[in-house]
Write a protein that binds this DNA or RNA. Sequence first.
RNA 1: GGACGGGUGGCAGAGUGGUCGAAUGCACCGGUCUUGAAAACCGGCGUGCCGCAAGGUACCGGGGGUUCGAAUCCCUCCCCGUCCGCCA
Length: 427
Amino acid sequence: MLDKKFIIANADLVQQNCEHRGVKSDVGRYVSLETESRQIQQEIEELSRQANAVSKSIGKAKDDAEREQRKEEGRQLREQKDARQTEFDRLAAEAGAIYRSMPNMTHPEAPIGEEAHSRELRRGEHEVRPLGFPVLDHVELAAQHDLIDFEAGARIAGAGFYFLKNEAVLLELALQQYAIQLLVGEGFVPTITPDLARTEILHGVGFIPRGPETQIYSIENFDLNLVATAEITLGGMYADQVLDAEQLPLKMCGISHCFRTEAGAAGRASRGLYRVHQFTKVEMFAFTAPEQSEDMHNYFCDLECQIFDGLGIPYRVIDTATGDLGGPAYRKFDLEAWMPGRGESGEFGEVTSASNCTDYQARRLNIRYKNKGEKGTHFAHTLNGTAVAISRAIIAILENCQQPDGTILVPEVLQQWVGKDRIGATE
RNA sequence: GGACGGGUGGCAGAGUGGUCGAAUGCACCGGUCUUGAAAACCGGCGUGCCGCAAGGUACCGGGGGUUCGAAUCCCUCCCCGUCCGCCA
């Protein structure tokens, strides 16, 4: 949510921002509805004031006749108030719909335009270079080494589900360890979060369950949804809380399973593990004061780079264009890892995403902070970033670390947890 | 899943139809005292919205209802505690 005062004072800016982001929002209509409803709000408050005064006087009335007369007076005032309230509710509902459709404002340096305008910021420390032998993709590699059973997954739960097997399991656990150890060392509070969350929390974070084209699985007969990311649970963790300014910035990380329907994604490049209905992810999340969020955003991006540099995987960092930003994001950096088996002769594929949501999520979730000895509260800023999305990291590892003899080298940083340095070596 | 008891300000905890946005204690902020600190004492101290301000209005887990008037009564949902049942 944007600040209502800000919208009214900067309607043109907000309208322009909506256009840059490809969101149809009638900001002018919103401003006039808001102005009108505030007028009515004033009337309602005045009627309430009068009615309250009448009610108070009844307790002190000297006889029954006066009491009855006062009661009637009170009834009439409340009726008038209810009528104005109905009108107010009508305007507020229309204003609210427009209000909720408005995306966050955008960082001035974010590239403007559709997805194609997204800008490459930099590359990782490992260069993309030809492997120099016929390359297999992760599906073929997994089949060769019996690492993933897509058929069994489909039998159990449908297309898009899979069993990880053998070293793929060890890789998943190793990636979790690797990421969590690194983040704990950086002062993040580690968590394992619920995999389900209430609808209210999803809304606060910016997800819309149970709608058409929703990405969210919902549980029948319960107000519960399978989370699409631990961003939902970590953001919800401090919903309705007032934090002390000294606690900020507060850095959390969480392991969760992620469930996505991938509605509307049929036909897009999504072979194998790339676009699946369930995967595990280690997510970073931070609550900061406003002046800290930009640094935190860069820090998240640096950590993501550190993680993929450590794995020895080439990648590029993308500054996402306005047209491709989700509603809550003020700016978003994605890491795209090189996947040699993707497409004709290798392609970059998104593996992480770090967003600065400024106070947009915090307004919805009602997460505030308070300066010691100061009156009032302020909305915190929230940020989220992928540490490791396991399924896509596995794609990148299998495809980048494959060897001419068909074996796969385990990245050195993971070897202590995988327990071997190579997959497929004949012992 | 069943029975009972609860959900009130940052925390603890009173309040069962009007004078209650709400006692009291702790915490916190300011002051007096002190060489300094502690203690003691005095004063202040919830959040949102409207307003330059005075002030007004809304909020006692969420939603709905009764009433001139609800923290207080009724319905409903959620959550917490205790005991029982079931269970990895």
